[in-house]
Simulated assay, not measured.
Amino acid sequence: MHGPAMPGWLLVALCAASGAYCLLRARSCTGDERRSAGGEAVMGFGMAAMAVPAAVVPPPPWAWAGYAAVFGAAALWALHGLWAARARASHGDTHHLHHLVGSLAMVYMALTMAPGAAGGHAHQAGAGGVPLVTGALLVYFVVFVLRTGARLVPVAAAATPGGASLTWGARPELALACRVSMAVAMVAMLLTV
């Protein structure tokens, strides 16, 4: 990632911690929730790898193509999940759509950060000099952070059947906090494009 080293390392830590929590969540969930947690873990670890400051640890020339391929595969997986959710008439398709947008945003960033791709911004710049795709993605993720973050504020303790306590992986507020933190990291990464 282009930019100062300290914020880059903080993004690496945030994304890696989110990815690790999503792996923990995948162990305690089943079905569609487990697949979703696995996709979020891939996204978190992929974002952590991509956020490593290039000034400190320069990525090999092929790394950007590798990131684009990994996140392209994640986008196809999210598209498959979106299609399956719509076929079942499930209301989880907005979450699959968010995964699709996030994966495509990472493909976009990998392609624009690749060596030799810096001149591509001049052709798609909006009135303020910000590329239109980058601006649209920034608006999407800022709105996502605000909407999802607002749902976190008044979270009441969820009653569990039989008085059983929830495991760390099954806590809905932690899953939301994980999604918010990855969306905040996405905003930070988009600002460096």
Rank of each mutant, 00 (worst) to 15 (best):
G3H: 00
P4Q: 02
A5P: 00
P7N: 05
P7A: 06
G8I: 00
G8C: 03
L10R: 05
L11E: 00
V12Q: 01
V12A: 01
A13M: 09
C15D: 09
A16S: 14
A16V: 04
A16R: 08
A17K: 05
A17Q: 07
A17E: 07
S18R: 03
S18K: 01
G19P: 03
Y21W: 13
Y21T: 00
C22K: 12
L24Q: 12
D32E: 15
D32R: 11
D32W: 14
E33V: 06
R34K: 14
R34T: 06
G38C: 12
A41Y: 08
V42A: 09
A49H: 07
M50D: 00
A51K: 00
P53T: 05
P53I: 02
P53A: 10
A54T: 10
V57I: 12
P59I: 07
P59M: 08
A63M: 13
W64I: 01
A65L: 14
A65Y: 13
V70W: 06
G72F: 06
G72N: 04
A73K: 04
A74G: 13
L76F: 12
W77C: 09
A78W: 01
A78S: 11
A78Y: 03
L79P: 02
G81M: 07
L82F: 07
W83M: 14
R86C: 06
A87T: 06
A87M: 08
R88D: 12
A89E: 12
A89Q: 15
G92W: 15
H95A: 15
H95T: 13
H96L: 07
L97I: 04
L97N: 05
H98P: 07
G102T: 11
S103D: 02
M106G: 00
M106I: 02
M106K: 05
Y108R: 07
M109I: 04
A110M: 01
A110G: 06
T112I: 11
M113R: 10
A114M: 05
A114I: 01
P115A: 15
P115Y: 09
G116C: 11
G119K: 04
A122E: 14
A122V: 10
A122Q: 09
Q124E: 13
A127Y: 15
G128M: 11
G129F: 11
V130P: 00
P131F: 01
P131Y: 02
L132K: 13
V133M: 10
T134N: 06
T134R: 10
T134C: 09
L137Q: 02
L138I: 07
F144A: 11
V145E: 04
R147A: 14
T148N: 12
G149C: 03
R151Y: 09
V153K: 15
V153I: 15
V155M: 13
A156F: 15
A156N: 11
A158K: 13
A159V: 13
T160F: 13
P161I: 15
G169S: 04
G169D: 10
R171I: 09
R171M: 12
P172K: 05
L174Y: 11
A175H: 10
A175K: 08
C178D: 08
C178P: 01
A183W: 05
A183F: 03
A185T: 05
A185Q: 02
L191D: 02
L191F: 09
T192N: 05
T192L: 08
